[in-house]
Amino acid sequence: MTAPQAVVVGCSAGGLDALKILLGGLDPALPQAVLVCCHSGSDSVELLCELLGRACPLPVFEALERQPVRGGAVQLAPSGYHLLVEADRHFALSVDPRVCHARPSIDVLFTSAAEVWRDALVGVVLTGANADGADGLRQLRRLGGCAVVQSPSDAEAPAMPQAALDRAGADHCVTLEAIAPLLNRLCLP
C-alpha cells in the first residue's frame, strides 16, 4: 500500500458519539481528506458539522457538489444524497435509490472513492445496525486500500462492523479509542 491520500469513514446507529471520539483524536497536521458518510436521520448536516467541528482539530464541513475534495479537512455527505468522488477528485451527489435503506450510503461512497484512490485509501467502518459499508469495504480492499473496522464487541451497534468483517475482512480490527491513533500512524509520514 502506498501512502494514503484519503480516508473514508462510515457509521450509522451510535455514529455521532463514535465520530466525536474518532475525529477528536485526529492529528491536526493530517494532510489527507477525510470523507464521512453518517446515517444521521436528521435533515441538518449543518448541525452535524458544527457538533463534530467542536470535537475535531481539523475543519469539518459539508461536501458540496462540483467542489474539489480538500486535504486536511473532514467533509460530510449531505443528508438525503449519495456522495461520490469523480476521477478528477471533485465531489458529485446523487439522489439514486437508497442502498441498504440508506442515502447517503456508505457502500456508494466507499466504492467510488476506492476507484479513485485505489491503494492510497483507508476505509473505516464504525458502529451501525445494518450492513451498509460491507460491500464498499470489500471493493476498497480488492483495489488495495486499507480496511479498518471497529471491533464489534466495542461498538454500540455491532451489526455493521460485523457485516464488514464477514464480507470484506479487515487489515485492522480495533477499538474505537484506538482508531484515531492508528489513522495518524498510517497517514502521517
Binding site: L84, V85, E86, A87, A92, S94, D96, V108, T111, S112
Partner: peptide, 9 residues
C-alpha cells in the same frame, strides 16, 4: 453525464 453516477447506473 457526470461519470461516477453514470457508471453506477
Amino acid at each position: 453525464y457526470a461519470p461516477a453516477s453514470l457508471k453506477r447506473r
